[in-house]
C-alpha cells in the first residue's frame, strides 16, 4: 500500500525535472529499488497510471531496476549477495556485516522529448 507514497514522489520528481529541462513529454522513468524494500512492481505501475494521468508523464514506462542485497563481512572481507534472507557470511559464518547495497530507492533518470 505504501507504493502510493513512493509513486506519488516519483511522479512529482519526474515532472519537476521535466519542467526544469523544458521537456514536453516524458517517455521513460528509471528507478532503482534495493531488494530490502517491500515494493510490488505491479502495484507501482498501477499507482503510476493514476498519478501520471493528465500530465506529460501519462503513458510513460516505469522501469524498475532491482538492486540485490550485498553485504561485506567485517571479519573475512568477503562480499556476498544475501539469498533467502540469510544475513550470515557464507565464508566464515560471521554476522559482523556491513550493507553495501539493497536499501536504494532512487529515481535515476528520465527520458523524454523537448
Amino acid at each position: 500500500m505504501h507504493e502510493m507514497s513512493v509513486v506519488s514522489n516519483i511522479t512529482k520528481i519526474a515532472l519537476e525535472t521535466a519542467k526544469d529541462n523544458k521537456l514536453k513529454v516524458i517517455d521513460k522513468i528509471k528507478i532503482a529499488v534495493g531488494s530490502q524494500h517491500h515494493l510490488a512492481p505491479d502495484l507501482m505501475e498501477y499507482a503510476f497510471t493514476f498519478f501520471s494521468k493528465d500530465t506529460i508523464a501519462e503513458g510513460a514506462s516505469l522501469i524498475i531496476e532491482k538492486i540485490p542485497i550485498t553485504m561485506i563481512c567485517l571479519d573475512c572481507k568477503k562480499k556476498f549477495n544475501v539469498q533467502n534472507q540469510v544475513y550470515i557470511c557464507p565464508e566464515c559464518s560471521s554476522v559482523q556485516l556491513v550493507m553495501k547495497s539493497g536499501r536504494e530507492l532512487i529515481i535515476e533518470n528520465i527520458e523524454g522529448e523537448r
Partner: peptide
C-alpha cells in the same frame, strides 16, 4: 533525451 536525476525518493521523509 535522457536526463540524469539521481534523487533519493523518500528524501523528504
Amino acid at each position: 533525451m535522457k536526463i540524469e536525476v539521481m534523487k533519493a525518493l523518500m528524501e523528504d521523509n
